[in-house]
């Protein structure tokens, strides 16, 4: 008859740190805690990372951590999906209200013109500065790639195409997202937290008509104008590099630009610019309207406006490219 196993003396047991024990009082966050003495359990399937050996403590997973982590993970994913759904839903409602307010655009002409001045004219110096260097660097890089493979007389062609179709609309949009999108989100966010938007509501003034519609309209109208400037200035920047650094004649470079220039490319670039203008102003407005809390909330909305608008610009750029430029 087999003898029953002798119990291990208590001193010989190893203290265990349950790193993922859930402290309900702390809102379910995982907190390190030494809970009891027991033998470590090896669970190769556990989601809990294998702990480091310690001379005093052997860290072993608590019986529940795998489940707890998984539940937390699923809960987190669920929360994110919910937040995204709420965001998209709110944005859709705002677009609906914006479209409903468009018939009153003539009554808000003064506000639209003011926003066109703010978004367009005041952005021009920055756009000119960035476009000069965009054109210059694209000419230099193209020349670097061309050497020994492609005749330099095609430098203007490559740069012209790249600037008109892609570089000017996208880079201008990203710069405007940083300057104008952030400014819209900060302004409307401050209006939200200081109850100015509520004040408009109680005065019977629709904030979407008064604040959003002029900004989105001016975004749609002024971005193509800015991109036109950007096209011109970028090509001039490229011309300067081509003449001074690559030692190409101005006539050769400009003939290259004209060689495969199609107005349809220009229209496509301007169409994209208009869509980008709508995205920048709409996201800026929505982020501003959604602001909660004080200065911190305004900061969060501003950052969010730039990040979300930039991502949407790049995604929509791809989608528009696949629709307009068939391979």
């Amino acid at each position: 008859m087999a003898r029953p196993p002798r119990p291990r003396p208590r001193e010989a047991r190893t203290p265990v740190i349950h790193r993922f024990a859930v402290n309900a009082a702390e809102g379910g966050r995982a907190t390190p805690a030494i809970l009891c003495h027991c033998a470590p359990i090896h669970r190769p399937w556990s989601l809990v990372p294998r702990p480091h050996a310690h001379p005093a403590f052997v860290i072993a997973p608590f019986a529940a951590p795998a489940d707890t982590s998984l539940v937390e993970l699923i809960r987190d994913i669920g929360r994110r999906i919910l937040r995204l759904t709420v965001y998209v839903g709110g944005l859709t409602v705002m677009i609906g209200r914006l479209l409903a307010s468009l018939p009153q655009i003539l009554g808000s002409a003064r506000l639209v013109v003011y926003q066109m001045l703010t978004m367009g004219v005041r952005s021009l110096p920055l756009i000119i500065l960035t476009s000069v260097f965009t054109g210059a660097v694209s000419a230099w890089q193209a020349a670097y790639q061309f050497q020994n493979f492609v005749p330099m007389r095609y430098l203007g062609t490559a740069v012209g195409k790249a600037v008109v179709i892609e570089l000017a609309p996208v880079l201008t949009a990203l710069v405007v997202a940083g300057r104008v999108g952030a400014s819209i989100a900060a302004e409307l966010g401050t209006m939200r937290v200081t109850e100015q938007i509520d004040a408009l509501e109680v005065m019977g003034v629709d904030p979407v008509r008064y604040l959003v519609m002029p900004r989105v309209t001016s975004g749609a109208l002024m971005m193509p104008v800015l991109v036109l400037f950007s096209d011109f200035v970028a090509i001039m920047g490229a011309l300067i590099v081509a003449v001074l650094m690559v030692h190409l004649s101005a006539a050769t470079f400009l003939n290259g630009v004209k060689l495969f220039f199609h107005m349809s490319d220009m229209y496509a670039g301007l169409f994209k610019a208009s869509i980008f203008g709508i995205i920048i102003s709409l996201i800026g407005c929505y982020q501003g309207f959604q602001t909660r809390g004080g200065a911190e909330g305004v900061g969060r909305s501003t950052t969010g406006a730039v990040v979300i608008a930039s991502v949407l610009i790049l995604i929509s750029d791809y989608l528009i490219a696949t629709m307009l430029f068939r391979v």
């Binding site: 200081t194 109850e195 100015q196 509520d198 004040a199 509501e201 109680v202 005065m203 019977g204």
Partner: peptide, 19 residues
Amino acid sequence: LYELRMRCGVLFQGGALFD
């Protein structure tokens, strides 16, 4: 709702004047 609000006036805590 806007028509009804036009018959009301509100003094907000911080004034909420448009900057």
